[in-house]
Design a binder for these strands. Structure first.
Lengths: 228, 228
DNA sequence: AAACAGGATTACGATTTTGTAATCACGGAG
DNA sequence: CTCCGTGATTACAAAATCGTAATCCTGTTT
């Protein structure tokens, strides 16, 4: 369940909010000062922060800036001050919403849900190259050729990645080696050749495949889409 | 040096172009028909194609479409037909430039250079996560923390990548396992724990680091930026 | 034909990777 | 203080990775 960090120095308000939010199923951690809030931040990483602006030992907006260094969790300011300048200052300091007291608990709930929803991580898509019938995924270390997925060792994956990022253009083993090992060396040729061979075997790349790796006379390779 | 595929059925024009381009340092391959051009395409991958429109056994524009399946190399049409409709048709079929005969050889050269220049691959930047003092490179399989680069084994890199892509948010070992192995399993907890430990050791992550991996009571992990 | 050259593949073994299991560390309960 | 539970670390061994070197293959030259 979502963790909420509630920073509020008025004991009554804190109690009311805490019990309401816990009833709603949230995991609530309370602090009544900037210092205590900073301490709790070390204990538990919140998914959202409810932050009173005026606190005994400091300004909530200053705390907001500190907090932003640690987490991107949305911050909702709760305060009695409704001057436009205050609101603007709140957003400037990194806040995501601003609620003025007194407020309805169900409105609070709705705003919390909205923030959590909007902040929901867009399923981080892995970096990959997608060509027709060939997908290369650097995160999982796999390649899928003509529907057959297989996991590749690092070197082979690197080579395939380089070839695919230059589909239809030549690339020298010299350059491949440089890109993978950072520097060139005496017999890079053999090393690349061997791994190239392993790659083809792993991918089960044969005459039936929609891609082929061709090599030119002067030590260059090309990944090509085969047309029949 | 750049390879140019020259497709031209007029022998004289072909000769002139070929010798001129070779003098300019290009590696020129000639074909006098669609069929021969298709054959040469199997032999050598060009960096650029000079294509006559009217050929004895077919239309250059049709060949252009076939060619596009194999390579993204720029295509320059060479033709005596200067009707607007022809020009448009040329570009529609995937051409990158259109030169009408007769033309000046130096103009041809300039246009070739322009195409090759524009087609120059923007140095493909590797997929990476860059945070202040922490860089994760999936291609090279390395991570750099506070200036110290080290190569990480796949599992550790995957974990770090997931943590970093959610900097400051909790992620359960359960979810990490799912993301890496595709499915969850009985004792995913131990496996993740061990690799997490190895990761910290590899990164030399200690009290001095600007990042820390914290673990909560209920099997969740967080990558956090440490503020002093 | 034989010799040769150079790319492709295979063989080999040192090293690395990695899941499992054992051990350690430590805070809380009894 | 001891026992226990849980998380962190370490130990271990099976398996995978990967560079080097040997071998195979194929087309060309002598």
């Amino acid at each position: 369940m979502a963790h909420i960090l509630l920073v509020e120095d008025d004991t009554d308000i804190m109690r009311i909010n805490q019990s309401f939010l816990e009833k709603e199923g949230y995991d609530v951690h309370c602090a009544d000062s900037v210092q205590q809030a900073a301490f709790l931040l070390e204990e538990c990483v919140p998914d959202l922060v409810l932050l009173d602006v005026m606190l005994p030992d400091g300004d909530g907006m200053d705390f907001c800036k500190i907090l932003r260094q640690k987490t991107q969790a949305p911050v909702i300011f709760l305060t009695a001050r409704d001057e436009n300048d205050d609101v603007i200052k709140g957003f400037r300091s990194g806040g995501d919403d601003y609620i003025t007291k007194p407020y309805d608990l169900n409105v609070l709930k709705a705003r919390i849900e909205a923030q959590l929803r909007r902040n929901a991580k867009p399923e981080a898509q892995h970096p990959r190259i997608e060509l027709p019938d060939l997908i290369i995924d650097l995160f999982s270390g796999t390649a899928e050729l003509d529907g057959n997925e297989c996991s590749l060792p690092q070197r082979e994956l690197q080579i395939l990645y380089l070839l695919a990022s230059r589909l239809g253009s030549r690339i020298s083993y010299h350059e491949i080696y440089e890109k993978i090992y950072g520097c060139d060396v005496e017999d890079s040729k053999n090393t690349i050749r061997v791994n190239m061979s392993r790659l083809k075997k792993h991918l089960a790349m044969d005459d039936m495949s929609t891609y082929e790796i061709a090599s030119t006379a002067d030590g260059e390779y090309v990944l090509r889409r085969v047309i029949f």
